[in-house]
Simulated assay, not measured.
Amino acid sequence: MKILLLLGLSIVAMSCFAQNSVNLELKKQLDAILLADQGIREFGDTETSDKRKDTLAVLLNYPRAALNKSAYAISRKIDSANLEKVERIIKEYGYPGKTMVGEPANTAVFYVIQHSEKISTYYPLIEKAGKTGELPFKYTAMMLDRKLGQEGKAQVYGTQVYMVMVLNPRTGKKEPFEYVIPIEDAKNVNKRRKEAGFESTVEENTLKFGFAYKEYTIEQINKIVKP
């Protein structure tokens, strides 16, 4: 009985210590950043209901009419402001991970960098956070894929898709062409995805974007999208 009691007290003490070790002020800042980053994107999603959009407008502190008219421009403004904030946070704290701010606040900096033009600058920081458990590794995997795609290289985990308008020679008109950015060693991609923490296969993930997965090489894509 004494052993069980001591064990129970130890668990409570550890829980309290964990809560006290979280930087609550920083967590509050990151929660707000995360809400803005994800909220404006949810608003622009065609599957988001009108009722939910009304809620998001309130949370984002923008009139619904303004969001309806200029969601993209507002998203750019939000992203720019968020980037300034997280760069100041990184400068002071390094990567604010799970130990420092808990979850899901530990994903806020990832999302802001992922939606910026500074992936190559901050990828090493995201990589370290993923490898040390301060950020789920699947986020590191997503940023690596985007970084490689921006560099014109094959991705590793098949997380990144792209759409470009291409000329249909039969109709003479440009049509949208959606594809998964070419994957290095594509036959083993689902094994890598599972090891990285993804619950879906590349085929299942692609369907979420509204089209079926088809394997391409970089050379094949270059021929398809050439002017």
Rank of each mutant, 00 (worst) to 15 (best):
K2Q: 15
L4C: 15
A13F: 14
S15T: 09
F17L: 13
A18F: 11
N20R: 12
L24Y: 14
E25K: 13
K27C: 09
K28A: 14
Q29T: 15
A32I: 15
L35I: 13
D37H: 11
Q38F: 12
E42H: 12
F43N: 06
F43Y: 09
E47A: 11
K51R: 14
D54P: 11
L56N: 06
L56Q: 03
L59R: 14
N61M: 07
A66R: 11
N68E: 06
S75V: 05
S75L: 06
A81N: 10
L83H: 07
E84A: 10
K85T: 10
I90C: 02
I90M: 03
K91I: 01
E92R: 11
Y93C: 02
Y93M: 02
G97K: 00
G97S: 00
K98D: 02
K98T: 01
T99V: 03
E103Q: 03
E103I: 03
P104D: 00
P104C: 00
N106D: 00
F110W: 07
Y111L: 09
V112I: 12
E117H: 15
E117P: 15
I119F: 10
S120T: 13
Y122I: 06
Y122T: 08
I126W: 04
E127Y: 10
K128D: 09
K128R: 06
G130N: 07
T132P: 09
T132D: 11
T132W: 08
L135T: 08
P136D: 13
F137E: 14
K138G: 09
A141T: 08
M143S: 05
D145A: 04
K147F: 01
E151L: 03
G152L: 00
G152V: 01
G152K: 02
A154T: 00
Q155I: 04
V156M: 04
Y157A: 02
G158W: 01
T159G: 03
Y162D: 07
M165C: 05
V166W: 01
N168D: 07
N168S: 01
P169A: 01
R170C: 06
G172M: 03
K173C: 06
K173P: 03
E175S: 07
E178T: 13
Y179R: 05
Y179E: 04
P182I: 04
V189Y: 02
V189S: 04
V189M: 06
R192F: 09
K194G: 12
G197A: 14
F198I: 10
E204R: 07
T206R: 08
L207Q: 13
A212S: 13
A212L: 12
Y213D: 02
Y213T: 01
E215R: 07
E219W: 01
N222E: 03
I224Y: 01
V225D: 01
